[in-house]
Lab assay of single mutants.
Amino acid sequence: KSAVKALFDYKAQREDELTFTKSAIIQNVEKQDGGWWRGDYGGKKQLWFPSNYVEEMI
């Protein structure tokens, strides 16, 4: 599983989504079709976030 870095702040709209700030590192990313991926951040595990808010880390 990979890690991504947030390009923008994102505030969860639902309880199954992540809230994060710009430059946050989201771990254990599971990529899905449809523009939403799952990952771990801030003590939350495998919640959804919009993939267009992040960049992949190499």
Rank of each mutant, 00 (worst) to 15 (best):
I25N: 02
K31Y: 07
P50F: 04
Q46L: 05
F8D: 07
W37E: 00
T21F: 12
Y41C: 06
N28V: 04
K11A: 12
F8C: 15
V4C: 15
F20I: 03
Q46D: 07
Q13M: 11
S51D: 05
G35H: 09
S2D: 11
S51R: 10
W48L: 13
K22G: 05
M57G: 08
Y53G: 03
G39F: 02
M57S: 09
Q46K: 08
G39N: 00
M57A: 09
S2W: 12
Q27V: 15
E15T: 10
E55T: 13
V54F: 01
L7P: 03
G35L: 11
G35R: 08
Y41A: 05
A24T: 08
G39I: 03
E55V: 14
V29K: 02
Y53E: 01
S23F: 15
E15A: 11
D9Q: 06
F20G: 00
W36R: 09
I26Q: 03
E55S: 10
F49H: 03
Y10N: 01
S51F: 07
F49K: 03
E15R: 09
F49Y: 02
W36S: 04
E55G: 07
G42F: 06
K45T: 14
E15F: 10
L47M: 12
A6K: 01
A12E: 04
E17F: 05
D33P: 15
A3P: 09
L47H: 14
P50A: 05
R14V: 07
K22F: 07
D33Q: 12
A3W: 14
D16Y: 08
K45E: 12
I25Q: 04
Y53A: 11
L7H: 05
N52C: 14
A12N: 04
E17V: 02
I26E: 01
Q13L: 10
W37Y: 05
K45F: 15
K22I: 09
E56W: 08
Q46H: 09
W48D: 01
Y10E: 01
K45W: 10
F8N: 09
W37H: 00
E56D: 13
K1D: 10
K11D: 13
K1R: 14
N52K: 10
T19E: 09
S2N: 14
D16M: 07
F20D: 00
G42Q: 10
L7Y: 04
I25P: 00
G42L: 09
E30V: 15
T21I: 11
I26A: 02
V4E: 03
K1T: 14
A6S: 05
D33G: 11
R38E: 00
N28M: 06
K11Y: 14
S2Q: 12
T21M: 12
W48V: 04
F49V: 02
I58C: 14
M57K: 06
A6T: 07
K1W: 11
A6E: 03
F49W: 01
D9G: 10
V4I: 04
D33F: 10
F49N: 00
E56R: 05
E17T: 04
I26K: 01
Y53F: 12
G42M: 11
K45P: 03
W37G: 02
Y41S: 05
N28Y: 05
G43D: 12
E55H: 08
L7E: 04
T19H: 04
E15N: 10
F8V: 10
E55F: 08
F8H: 11
M57P: 08
Y53P: 01
D9V: 01
E17I: 01
D33I: 10
F8K: 14
D9M: 05
K5S: 06
W36E: 02
G39Q: 00
A3G: 08
L18T: 02
K44E: 09
W48P: 01
P50H: 05
Q27H: 14
K44S: 12
F8T: 08
T21S: 13
K45I: 15
G42R: 09
N28L: 04
A24K: 03
F8L: 12
K45H: 13
F49Q: 01
V29R: 00
D9H: 06
S51N: 07
Q46C: 09
R14Q: 10
Q27I: 15
F8M: 13
V4K: 03
E56H: 07
G34E: 07
I58F: 14
M57Q: 09
L18Q: 01
S23L: 11
G42C: 12
R38A: 04
D9W: 06
D16V: 09
L18P: 01
A6I: 03
S2R: 13
T19R: 01
F20L: 04
A6Q: 01
A12W: 04
E30K: 13
K11Q: 14
L7G: 05
R38K: 12
W48A: 05
I26L: 06
Y41I: 06
A6R: 03
D40W: 03
V54T: 07
S23R: 08
E17C: 08
R14N: 14
N28D: 05
D16A: 06
S2E: 10
L47C: 15
V54P: 00
V54A: 06
A3Q: 14
A6G: 05
Q13K: 12
G35T: 08
A12G: 11
T19P: 04
N28G: 06
G35S: 09
D40Y: 01
K11I: 15
N28H: 07
E55Q: 10
W36K: 05
D9Y: 06
A6H: 01
W36H: 04
N52T: 12
K44H: 11
R38P: 00
G39D: 00
E17Y: 04
R38W: 01
N52V: 11
Y10V: 00
K11W: 13
A24R: 03
G42D: 12
N28C: 10
W36A: 03
E15Q: 10
Q13D: 08
V54W: 02
E17A: 00
Y53S: 07
A12C: 07
K11F: 14
I26P: 00
D9F: 04
E15H: 11
A12D: 01
Y53W: 07
F20K: 00
K5V: 14
W48K: 10
M57I: 15
L18M: 06
L18V: 01
I58Y: 14
I25S: 03
Y41Q: 03
A12Y: 02
S2M: 15
K5Q: 10
G39T: 00
T19N: 08
K5M: 11
F20M: 02
L7N: 06
S51C: 14
